[in-house]
Design a protein around this nucleic acid. Sequence first.
DNA 1: CAGAGGATCGGCT
DNA 2: GCCGATCCTCTGG
Length: 185
Amino acid sequence: MDLARFLVGALLVRDAPEGRVSARIVETEAYLAQGDAASHSRSGQTARNRSMFLARGHAYVYFIYGSAYCLNVASARNGVGEAVLLRAAEPLEGLELMRKRRPKAKNDAALLRGPGNLAAAFGLDRRLDGADLCEAGSELYLARGTPPAAILETERIGISRDAHHQLRFLEAGSPFASGPKRPRA
DNA sequence: CAGAGGATCGGCT
DNA sequence: GCCGATCCTCTGG
């Protein structure tokens, strides 16, 4: 939860041969190592989720519903399956490349709205699973950004099991966020 | 090996 | 807000 909150306002950068894209994260969700029926790590480590068990700051990228990739940041220590899902971001650099990768986006504010869309605009797939996101200058990394004026906490999205409490974090009033914005700052 | 379900998206009502 | 597409992953027998 600490990392999920911390990452709202942080920057995500990808430097790839096709070009550079960057964005400011506005929405995240926490998936806990203990007592979280919705976490991919709920039944232990598998071939798919092993990166979730890497040390804090590593990427966990998975493929879902046969159509979308999602990017997470591992949040605990090596051996503990816990991560933060990046759900939405504000486009900063490489808008043209993002539009090319996301031709269906209705407008620029929607380019990075939703975890699958964010990953698509960044051109991510399983090749970046396990990458260290803490080294500036590597292909994909996190950097300091501008903190939000206020952070809202809501229930997570798309969870059919037990909805849990407030494990979703988003910048208050952000036009780049996904889903409903319930109160409770 | 078969079966079930999913941390989604986009289109339609 | 509701629903279907799509296919990967895990579980159980």
